[in-house]
Design a protein around this nucleic acid. Sequence first.
DNA 1: CCCTTTCTACGAAGCCCTTCGTATTTCTCC
DNA 2: GGAGAAATACGAAGGGCTTCGTAGAAAGGG
Lengths: 132, 132
Amino acid sequence: MSDNKKKTQFLTEVELEFMTRLWELGQATVRDVQDALAPAKKLAYTSAATILRILEQKGFVTSTKQGKTFIYQATLSKDTYQSRSLKNLSEKLFDNTPAALVARLVDDYDLTEETLGEIRALIDKRLRDDKR
Amino acid sequence: MSDNKKKTQFLTEVELEFMTRLWELGQATVRDVQDALAPAKKLAYTSAATILRILEQKGFVTSTKQGKTFIYQATLSKDTYQSRSLKNLSEKLFDNTPAALVARLVDDYDLTEETLGEIRALIDKRLRDDKR
DNA sequence: CCCTTTCTACGAAGCCCTTCGTATTTCTCC
DNA sequence: GGAGAAATACGAAGGGCTTCGTAGAAAGGG
């Protein structure tokens, strides 16, 4: 005890949009991120700056100053966030049963035969690897 | 045009908790749902009533009056909401590539051989069904 | 050196979410 | 029919998110 810091595990819609840009760009200034936003999601420069500042407060990104400008970078990898999100979804909505999640996915989407094949290959690979 | 009704596609944390109870119970009064909440998530009776009222406003549940009491019921099946959530996650975080989602899932979780087998069976079934 | 451009810092407005308390209605049953 | 129990209706407080504007600092070219 204790940093009574309230953990914000998950990103809001807008924050996710920003993190996605950062994951793509690797490093980026406010301007870079703002420019990278889809036309439908454009924000004022100061709005973009605010979102990045908040993301930094929450620990999702870090910044380093270069000249007068901050350069932002994600502290959390996309992979890690994907894991976290899937785990959460599985817990909250699929009774912590990943197989049920895949079942739903396979049932709903009009997955092409090719996609289904890819998925099966992944599983087979994993089964093989586990055997070893 | 137009019903300028802003669609709220997704549930908040608390709302999801409530919907989960409703999905389990089938039909339920405010009191039923409140009682069904996990101890850590107990709310005052009026709070529970408020959440259900909001869920109704948003169209996720309907109510019918029975005597002086409202009986609530989900209008959206859990399956449907699962689909919607998966679709969203896939779009927003996996470049709309369901196979990538499964890949992450298979990589992260320590899935048992049994679970992996189940998943593969699902896919095989789907592949077979599609063939027909 | 100063003007323009570009950046950061900060705070405010509007909205929604969460939680609850108070006030009112409705039912029941003695 | 009136008292008490239980339900609904409503609104308010507190907090967070989203968006932006204004003010001030920093940089650089003429």
